[in-house]
Amino acid sequence: MPDDPRSVAAEVAEDVADLQAQVRALSARFDQFTRADSPDHTSPATPEDEQGGDGAAEEPGEPEWTSPPFIFLLDPPAYDDELCALAEWVEGVLVPGYLAEPSADARWCHLWTEHPVAVARLHALWLAWQELTDPATCGYTGPSTWHRDHYDPCIREIRSPGGPFGGCTKGEHAIIHRQPGLVPSAWSLSIASE
Results as ranks from 00 to 15, higher is better:
residue 128 A to C: 05
residue 168 C to S: 09
residue 105 D to W: 06
residue 132 L to M: 08
residue 36 A to T: 01
residue 108 W to Q: 03
residue 5 P to E: 04
residue 193 S to R: 15
residue 113 T to I: 04
residue 174 A to L: 13
residue 183 V to M: 05
residue 73 L to V: 08
residue 133 T to F: 05
residue 169 T to L: 12
residue 9 A to M: 04
residue 18 D to V: 15
residue 110 H to D: 12
residue 176 I to S: 14
residue 61 G to Y: 14
residue 102 P to M: 00
residue 156 R to K: 13
residue 19 L to K: 15
residue 60 P to F: 10
residue 131 E to Y: 03
residue 60 P to G: 04
residue 126 W to D: 00
residue 101 E to H: 05
residue 151 Y to M: 06
residue 16 V to L: 11
residue 78 A to G: 05
residue 43 S to E: 14
residue 194 E to I: 12
residue 115 H to E: 10
residue 86 L to A: 06
residue 45 A to Y: 08
residue 36 A to D: 13
residue 48 E to W: 05
residue 143 P to F: 00
residue 134 D to G: 03
residue 52 G to K: 05
residue 49 D to S: 13
residue 29 R to A: 15
residue 31 D to E: 10
residue 180 P to L: 07
residue 79 Y to P: 07
residue 73 L to I: 04
residue 45 A to N: 11
residue 42 T to E: 15
residue 184 P to H: 00
residue 107 R to E: 06
residue 1 M to C: 01
residue 177 H to M: 02
residue 14 E to I: 09
residue 106 A to F: 10
residue 61 G to A: 10
residue 180 P to W: 02
residue 44 P to W: 08
residue 64 E to A: 15
residue 97 G to E: 01
residue 121 R to S: 02
residue 142 G to I: 01
residue 146 W to Q: 04
residue 174 A to D: 04
residue 70 F to Q: 14
residue 91 E to P: 13
residue 97 G to H: 02
residue 110 H to V: 11
residue 129 W to T: 07
residue 148 R to Q: 05
residue 81 D to K: 11
residue 133 T to Q: 06
residue 110 H to L: 10
residue 96 P to M: 04
residue 132 L to Q: 06
residue 5 P to D: 03
residue 76 P to S: 10
residue 30 F to Q: 14
residue 132 L to S: 00
residue 150 H to K: 04
residue 75 D to P: 09
residue 36 A to I: 09
residue 38 S to Q: 14
residue 26 L to Q: 14
residue 86 L to W: 08
residue 34 T to M: 13
residue 50 E to F: 10
residue 118 A to Q: 03
residue 117 V to A: 12
residue 68 P to Q: 15
residue 151 Y to N: 01
residue 25 A to Y: 11
residue 9 A to C: 01
residue 91 E to R: 11
residue 24 R to Q: 03
residue 49 D to G: 06
residue 95 V to R: 09
residue 117 V to N: 08
residue 78 A to F: 05
residue 3 D to I: 03
residue 49 D to V: 08
residue 183 V to Q: 09
residue 91 E to G: 08
residue 19 L to C: 14
residue 87 A to T: 13
residue 1 M to P: 08
residue 3 D to F: 07
residue 161 P to E: 12
residue 165 F to V: 03
residue 85 A to S: 15
residue 179 Q to R: 10
residue 152 D to C: 10
residue 46 T to M: 07
residue 132 L to P: 03
residue 36 A to E: 07
residue 157 E to F: 08
residue 95 V to Q: 06
residue 32 Q to E: 14
residue 120 A to M: 02
residue 29 R to W: 07
residue 96 P to N: 01
residue 97 G to Y: 00
residue 92 G to K: 05
residue 84 C to G: 13
residue 26 L to D: 11
residue 99 L to P: 01
residue 104 A to H: 11
residue 170 K to E: 14
residue 41 H to K: 15
residue 36 A to N: 06
residue 69 P to E: 11
residue 134 D to A: 09
residue 64 E to Y: 12
residue 159 R to A: 07
residue 28 A to E: 07
residue 59 E to N: 12
residue 137 T to D: 06
residue 132 L to C: 02
residue 10 A to W: 07
residue 94 L to W: 00
residue 168 C to K: 03
residue 83 L to T: 05
residue 123 H to K: 00
residue 86 L to D: 12
residue 103 S to M: 06
residue 114 E to K: 10
residue 156 R to G: 11
residue 175 I to H: 13
residue 97 G to C: 09
residue 40 D to H: 12
residue 71 I to Y: 09
residue 100 A to P: 02
residue 146 W to K: 03
residue 53 G to R: 06
residue 150 H to P: 06
residue 62 E to I: 07
